[in-house]
Design a protein around this nucleic acid. Structure first.
Lengths: 185, 185
DNA sequence: GTCTATATTGCGATAGAC
DNA sequence: GTCTATCGCAATATAGAC
């Protein structure tokens, strides 16, 4: 019998509930009561698995770290190249990574120092990879900023129509960004 | 005697205090108690000028509206053109507009619908102006996303070193963005 | 592991004196 | 116009039964 990958099934359900409340509503809405209710346990039950709210935050940030590492690996080996992969994957809200990034962003906005440090290091990872794929470092930065902009819009203005309206617009945006990437230094 | 532009001196001091707590700390830190203390009045004194926290939010959003209108006018008439003006003015945290935008962004992140609507309309104004200055609409959008990205970084990762490290890097970034703007459709 | 109290603190808002 | 005092509520966390 292999060691169970997730020590407890409720632990993950609680973490999912916390993440959902953060992304779908707000940092303020993600109270212990609300998380417990959504996860289908009592507050006491929740606090058995995560002994404080801070422990809950740590849980999200560990999940983020894991997902970011996986993403960087996929970006590194993407068939259409890292730049194409990066921009397309910036259209938020779909993947598990997107959800966890948004959750962490809400915590960072709530002035949580650990969350800010995690996001900062995550961004450093992406920038480093973009810089290795693009000859001009300033172009790499501009590309990262476009991706950040797309994220920012979906984080801050969730119920607004997405900045990037549809697939056709996304294709044209990717084409433009690839042009920037190919630009000689 | 002209009508006083600001009906009450403490009213503005209270609004400044609210804005400072939002930008320097977080939405959660900007409690009525904290705002009153920083403005140098009692909680009762604060509530005489703003009868609820929602009224305080409205005060910030009205200030934002006024500052955005001024900014769009300056961008329209900027000597080096709207694109140059837009990107340079995205390096956040200096002007009165920057501070108020960040304050509104914190409120938007706290799921405040009015704040989200204000930021959305503000963004619409900038995008429309960029589109009128740049022949390719997708280039206009990319330029706006770069600006948004710079903002997003200073909002979410305030104590991290700015993404745009120094004036030299900013000049190279502006040059790149102007290249994008000049790109034929 | 999960539950029901309950202690404690902090917040938004009201009431009424000055 | 500014103050103090206080109510009502919600949030984090603890204690201890099952």
């Amino acid at each position: 019998m292999p060691p169970s990958p997730s020590p407890s099934p409720s632990r993950d359900r609680i973490l999912d509930a916390f993440e959902e409340l953060l992304t779908e509503q707000s940092e303020r809405a993600a109270t212990l009561d609300a998380v417990a209710a959504r996860a289908g346990v009592s507050k006491g039950g929740l606090l058995y698995h995560f002994s404080s709210k801070d422990a809950l935050v740590d849980g999200i940030l560990e999940r983020l770290q894991r997902l970011v590492d996986d993403d960087l690996e996929r970006m590194r080996t993407a068939p259409a190249g890292p730049v194409d992969y990066f921009v397309r994957s910036s259209v938020s809200s779909q993947s598990a990574l997107d959800r966890t990034v948004i959750a962490a962003a809400r915590l960072a906005q709530g002035a949580n120092p650990k969350a800010r440090a995690s996001l900062s290091s995550m961004q450093g990872g992406w920038l480093a990879l973009l810089e290795s794929a693009v000859s001009d470092p300033i172009a790499a930065k501009a590309i990262m900023l476009v991706g950040d902009g797309i994220y920012y819009n979906s984080v801050l203005l969730p119920e607004t129509a997405s900045v990037v309206r549809d697939d056709a617009e996304m294709d044209r945006l990717v084409a433009l960004v690839l042009e920037i990437a190919a630009r000689p230094r």
